[in-house]
Design a protein around this nucleic acid. Structure first.
Lengths: 125, 125
DNA sequence: TCAAGTTTTGACAACCATTTTCGTTTTCGC
DNA sequence: GCGAAAACGAAAATGGTTGTCAAAACTTGA
């Protein structure tokens, strides 16, 4: 893993939430790095290809990334104020989606599940 | 509801799957309509604001729309080949996501759940 | 240590879906 | 019909993301 890719990965790990490529670029530049925006995109592409980071799309269509603890299949509970995310697992949903697919004769069934809310911290204000 | 908006709504209803604004624009023009791309976007915006159509984002970040039978909260089982979608409901997921949120002290919990697969028809080939 | 080849990088331009702008056309109430 | 208000559409602007390409950095073999 090249230094630049490491830097991007580290910048991501420094946050507990989902960050956009532009966010990370701004962070890195603010830290004095001379990294280019193109390289940030390339690093994130590579990291997501290798399964080291998770990607999802905001309602506005922007791609946001997160360095998760586990590489196993999981979902997220995301705070819509501070964007902090908690990794969640759930045999319940896995079973449910598989059943739904089977019931309608679908094969190769996969799913996307994301839960949003306001975290305890942010709920205070 | 204006004529143009109706035309867009109808074009959407003609399909059982999710379509992008660009798709619908192409369809309408192919049918001889002189509608403009801007108007298609405006119509879709209005339709989704009023809850008449559902929106979701593809992996590429493109917005796709669907005219669903029910206006109630529901999810979709989407064929990744022909994009046909089946509307699904599930007390199971609703309950599960609410519990997950509560467990972590999150308030105002919502969720997005989409199931993908290859439909029976498309599985044949 | 040095030169040639390979990989990585980053400035800039290109892309493409979507939004804005703005002048024109259509619709509607009277 | 008439005029105000809403809807339209062509073209330009926006903004995230990707492609291009020459320069910089790292490898390798001698």
């Amino acid at each position: 893993m090249s230094t630049r890719r490491e830097a991007v990965h580290q910048a991501l790990t420094a946050s507990s939430g989902f960050r956009s490529a532009q966010d990370l670029y701004a962070d890195l530049r603010a830290d004095g790095s001379k990294i280019g925006l193109t390289t940030v995109y390339r690093a994130l592409q590579a990291l997501s290809d290798s399964g080291d980071v998770d990607v999802l799309r905001t309602d506005e269509g922007e791609a946001v990334y997160r360095a998760c603890d586990t590489e196993d299949h999981h979902h997220h509970l995301v705070c819509r104020v501070c964007s902090t995310a908690v990794e969640i697992e759930g045999p319940t949903v896995e079973r449910w989606t598989a059943e739904i697919g089977a019931q309608h004769g679908f094969t190769g069934v996969t799913h996307t599940v994301e839960v949003f809310g306001t975290c305890a911290e942010c709920s205070k204000s």
